[in-house]
Design a protein around this nucleic acid. Structure first.
Length: 477
RNA sequence: GGGGUAGUAGGGUAGCCUGGUCCAUCCUAGAGCGUUUGGGACGCUUUGACGGCGGUUCGAAUCCGCCCUACCCCA
């Protein structure tokens, strides 16, 4: 069928859809010849730039940006016992300089606590230095043994935004945890990605943390994707790295810390949550091309149409809209498909008919069609685009809610995890969690979920029947 | 962690068992020319590959070994 030409696999076949979309929409090229490392196409990188631009802007309100080295000396990396246990199997080591073996092996950071905290020990002197809130956006390396996936499970995480804060007291650090969660919620709200916030179980918390709050979303195949974490580090690291301050009374005190991060999984979620069978769909704020102008140049009025189109382009660009003119010698239909694949938020068509009417045809990526008078182009475009994000937010929110279901019996649990996320009652015992995971093939995501009222959840642990609390179970990426 | 399956031009494939005119083929690929253009245009010309390294052989996409990479399924 002609309509099938160049089509993506349907989104219902999510894995195939995702792999195909990545290169067809020019986001990532997966052909780099090293496992787990992928290349950003310029178009994908432009999406990243807009997403991380927002993240940076939000972080800058209460943090300062910094940059620490990629390499961490072995003796620093090996200081914090729990931390080592959590990461040592995934660390790449630089052992040679040229042909010489290094005296001190250097770790490629899998995360930067052990790079940053020795410096924090030097920088923090007094309670007046606190709170200290820094972040950096860097690449990190993890020797993943599981199946790698572009943007999702990587050996080089190219875009890790990690924040590291220092506070006087445990409670101050806890407040920072809440502040960080609020930032991340706002961030994902802007991306129109609905999230689930919950507290990870003990065995799944960050190595060296008091507790971990995770932010998950649900992918189109019903599996959850962790797209942000916030860790309360207590004084574990400050004791290890001697991060101390002199309090108001002149006594030396160990500081309390938090750290939290977001990676390019945010981009994976953005693409996956909103995309459709025709390709990328992006909130206009993050689309590299917000408006594409497509001339419909028929016969002898070709020059006239092209001139009108380039005037439109100029008007849009002057108004600060990321606009492009597609004047390639292709049929208009081919261009529509091309830009839909790449997630252009709005298409403006102009042909002889439109010129005569003093109007242009506008079609949003989600299919809202209208006509805009040429002399009100900018306000018309702004209006039409303004509604897109809200529509996407509603649609994605409904999708997420439909994937979360309470379960009071084992059958309901298995069914719910098959479709998405189950909310069950769990007593808190590891044995019962193991059972929950075993019958579902999923994992216990967390407790204390901030979901509003789910309702319909018994208080008795689904496994053992003793007193339990609401717990999320799902299959995770 | 365990098991499959596969890698041939930008993409998709045939050929492989049974080494040799294999100058293979198709396209939504690239370059060029012309006709075209309101939802994936057409004609002609043309470009371009056997995942990597090593081995066997007069001769390897094809046989052998090692490695790399990808996808799927199961703990």
């Amino acid at each position: 069928m002609a309509e099938e030409e160049g089509a993506l696999p349907p989104k219902s076949d999510f894995s195939a859809w995702y792999n195909d979309l990545l290169w067809r929409a020019e986001i990532m090229d997966v052909r780099y010849p090293v496992k787990g490392l992928y290349v950003w196409y310029p178009h994908g990188f432009a999406i990243r730039r807009h997403v991380y631009g927002l993240l940076r802007e939000m972080m800058d309100r209460s943090h300062q940006e910094t940059l620490f080295p990629l390499l961490i000396p072995e003796h620093e990396f090996m200081k914090e016992a729990e931390h080592i246990k959590g990461f040592e199997d995934e660390v790449y080591w630089v052992t040679h300089g040229g042909k010489d073996q290094l005296d001190v092996p250097l770790a490629l950071r899998p995360t930067s606590e052990t790079a940053i905290y020795p410096m924090y020990a030097l920088w923090v002197r007094s309670h007046a230095d606190l709170p200290l809130r820094l972040y950096q956006i860097v690449n990190t390396f993890r020797y993943e043994t599981k199946h790698t996936r572009p943007l999702i499970r990587l050996r080089e995480i190219t875009s890790f935004k990690e924040a590291h804060t220092v506070h006087s007291t445990w409670n101050d650090a806890q407040e920072q945890v809440e502040a960080a969660i609020a930032i991340y919620q706002e961030f994902y709200d802007r991306l129109c990605i609905p999230v689930i916030v919950s507290k990870r179980p003990e065995w799944d918390k960050f190595p060296g943390a008091d507790y971990t709050i995770a932010i998950d979303t649900v992918m189109p195949d019903g599996k959850t994707l962790q797209i942000g974490t916030v860790h309360h580090l207590g004084d574990h690291f400050s004791r290890t790295f001697s991060i101390m301050y002199e309090d108001a009374l002149g006594a030396q005190q160990y500081a309390h810390q938090t750290c939290y991060g977001i990676s390019e999984r945010s981009i994976a979620a953005l693409i996956s949550v909103h995309g459709d069978d025709r390709g990328l769909v992006l909130p206009p704020e993050f689309s590299p091309v917000q408006v594409v102008v497509i001339p419909i140049p028929i016969g002898k009025r070709k020059d006239e149409v092209l001139l009108a189109a380039s005037r439109l382009l100029e008007t849009l660009q002057k108004a600060g809209i990321r606009a492009r003119l597609d004047d390639r010698d292709l049929r208009p239909g081919a261009k529509y498909y091309y830009w839909e694949m790449r997630g252009a938020a709005l298409r403006i068509e102009i042909g002889p008919r439109d010129i005569d009417a003093g109007m242009v045809v506008s079609v949003t990526r989600t299919g809202q069609r209208s006509q805009i008078p040429v002399d009100q182009l900018v306000s018309g475009v702004t209006d039409v685009l303004g509604g897109e994000a809200a529509r996407m937010k509603v649609r994605a929110g409904e999708m997420l809610r439909s994937r979360i279901r309470p379960a009071g019996t084992t059958d309901e649990l298995v069914a719910a995890v098959g479709e998405g996320v189950a909310v069950v009652s769990w007593c808190g015992e590891k044995n019962c969690a193991d059972s929950l995971e075993e019958v579902t093939g999923g994992s216990v995501l967390g407790t204390e979920a901030r979901l509003g009222d789910i309702g319909g959840i018994p208080t008795a642990c689904l496994i053992c029947g003793s007193n339990g609390k609401a717990t999320l179970v799902g299959r995770a990426y």
